[in-house]
Design a protein around this nucleic acid. Sequence first.
DNA 1: GCCGCGATCTTGTCAATGGCTAGATTCCGC
DNA 2: GCGGAATCTAGCCATTGACAAGATCGCGGC
Lengths: 198, 198
Amino acid sequence: MARFRPYSGGMAYHHGNLRAELLDAAAETIAAGGVEGLSLRDLARRVGVSHAAPAHWFGDRAGLLTAVAADGFARLADDLEAAAAPGGGLLEAGIAYVRFATADRGRFDVMFRPGLLRGDDPDLRAAQERAAAELRSAAAGVPGDAGTAGLAAWSLVHGLATLWNSGAVQDDAPVEEVARRVASVLAPPGPAPAGGDR
Amino acid sequence: MARFRPYSGGMAYHHGNLRAELLDAAAETIAAGGVEGLSLRDLARRVGVSHAAPAHWFGDRAGLLTAVAADGFARLADDLEAAAAPGGGLLEAGIAYVRFATADRGRFDVMFRPGLLRGDDPDLRAAQERAAAELRSAAAGVPGDAGTAGLAAWSLVHGLATLWNSGAVQDDAPVEEVARRVASVLAPPGPAPAGGDR
DNA sequence: GCCGCGATCTTGTCAATGGCTAGATTCCGC
DNA sequence: GCGGAATCTAGCCATTGACAAGATCGCGGC
């Protein structure tokens, strides 16, 4: 993602890192004011380029948001992978999911809004697939019907994150703690869950 | 719906039912193209009034969306109440939640986006409170810590509905069936209620 | 050394939008 | 049937996203 561009001259033209900077600024702005609060022109102003510069990199608004979402899925996949690494089970993956969604809110807000994105973008699809694979691997080994149990776990953490981000959850504790409590309802902390029914 | 117009004369001025019709058309449009696809002017065109007519009823865009959201919370509360009526337990309430969110997508899409709404609107707050009360009453009597279990149940159905609406769920079965399977992971169908299946 | 070509960014323009103000039309209480 | 208030329209402005055309720069080839 972050292309390093060896670069000598002044900053007039050829900003040097525009694409990455636009993506970061976009995520920041969305986190602060939602997707509808993101204006391409304001974004350009923020980064210090002309109002048409973003169009060169992303084509249009959908292109920009698609890149933000792809970035988000890649980061989520990284986080899930890290959470699964040593002795982390489904519970740790769930907490990582919620942590990402609440900490990297700007990107998360865009990731599940297909109406705003170019669903056929190759980068987006690849990142989505990587994140999905991490989710599947985290949910592997749960008792009962794998599909249903996995979907339930995903729904649980996704719903908690969404509700939290919307301010609907009344809890003074930090998100991770709430996530741990809530997720424990489904996935007891121990790696080998006991109570299989159905 | 709500085509009835208690008026005798022509419909030049004084449309007769503008507010309700704008709300319905707005929900419909949002369901089809998302909130960002909703233009006040297009909405006015659709209903056949001037571009400034919506402003009279709702002030601005936030006012319109607030009214849509309030309407949505009221309908959700009605549905939850109906689901709880005879022998419905937490499971039935959860299914009703998912059914509402997927069937009345236009309204649901707006209900949990505080950045788009006027959070201090009295109608909105009242409708929210009514829906919250229904949720609490549905979650009453679950085992374990009431707050955590209730939040887990809410997160589960909210997450499933959100994921479903975003197209992230790969399942050919109708939503209600998926919701029943998923929600059963948390709330086994069995305990008190007599209403077997359906 | 420098030249040309493509990549990168800018300026200019246009239709559409949200919001505001002023005015037209109709309803309703008296 | 009259006057005020509710309802809707018309006109205007700043801002936005998208597009087109041009300016500037970096890099490889000679």
